[in-house]
Amino acid sequence: MQIPNTDTIVYVNGRLVRKSEAVISIYDSGFCHGDGAYEGIRLYDGKVFRLEAHIRRLFEALTMLDIDPGVDQAGMIKIVRDTFAANELTTDLHMRLQVTRGRKRMTGMNPMLNLGPASIVAFVDHKPPIFDKAGITLITSTLRRASPNVIDAKIHHTNQLNQILANIEANRQGADEAIMLDDRGFVAETNSTTMFCVKDGVLMTPHPTYIVVGITRGILLQMAVEEGWGAKEADLSVYDFVTADEVFICGTVGELVPVKAIDGRALKGPIPGPVTVRLMEKYRALTRAEGTAV
């Protein structure tokens, strides 16, 4: 999908500026070392969807990284609302809210080199859901998601090289996303989204051990309960997804998207399947009904 590079208004350390004019120090910890945390947040019809949940998860990551953002959660919510409000577009806006450890007096990984305070940046892009809702293709990456004894994936940190390398594999093979396995060989997620499958009427998704605990993921599990379906977290292999009745991915940036092929194997039809269609409808309705006005 070709999306225009709209010159939106963004937030950089207390200032609202044009995207084309935004700058930050080359000594910023995020630029030097990927040292920070972020959230992806979407605006629907002038309302921010699940804003409080995103800010809570951001502050949890900052706690684990020992980064003091210099504002409380209410202050961060105000930054998000003010930044969205400064833009003329009121829908199909996606924000990457990022907090880094701030500027360093010289390069080096030791946080003692930081001068403080933290850097807060809110990137805003005109970005409709990025995947084809008619179905996407996946390949299985040769790379693995790190286990919690390497780095806990629940920390929504800005160092995404692991996923970027997997995305490169997908690009080279002409696929939309790459499935990433954990160190035991079970599916963790794709390089940027959570995975779900449906088998015999049961909605299933991997355990949240090697992944960020997705906000969209939690919403869909709750919707399954509301619909009276079975829903469970499980150790799932690529086999379970290839042989499932339905497969889809989900996340804030792409919403819900059906999968039509994995590793060159066409999945069962119809695509999207009935459970996926129902969840897509419910999720769309929810995003239009809920939200924090800007």
Rank of each mutant, 00 (worst) to 15 (best):
M1Y: 12
V12F: 05
R15A: 10
L16G: 05
V17N: 05
I24T: 15
G30N: 04
F31D: 07
C32I: 13
G34I: 12
Y38S: 12
D45H: 14
E52P: 04
R57Q: 01
I67G: 04
P69V: 05
R81H: 12
R81V: 09
L89I: 09
H94Y: 15
R96A: 04
V99N: 02
T100Y: 03
T100F: 00
R101T: 00
K104Q: 13
R105D: 10
T107R: 14
T107A: 10
P111C: 02
G116P: 08
V121D: 02
D125R: 14
H126I: 05
T137W: 01
L138M: 00
S141P: 02
R144A: 06
P148G: 03
N149F: 14
V150I: 14
I155W: 15
I155K: 14
T158D: 04
N159C: 06
R172Q: 12
Q173L: 10
A175V: 04
E177Y: 01
A178D: 06
T190R: 03
D200Q: 14
V202H: 02
M204T: 12
H207G: 07
P208N: 11
V213Y: 15
I215D: 06
G218R: 15
A224E: 00
V225I: 14
V225P: 00
E233P: 03
D235M: 11
V242Y: 01
T243F: 10
E246P: 06
G251F: 04
G251A: 06
T252F: 10
V257G: 02
A261Y: 08
A266P: 03
L267R: 03
P270Y: 05
I271P: 00
V275H: 01
R278G: 01
M280P: 01
R284P: 07
A285S: 10
R288A: 12
A289W: 13
T292S: 15
A293K: 15
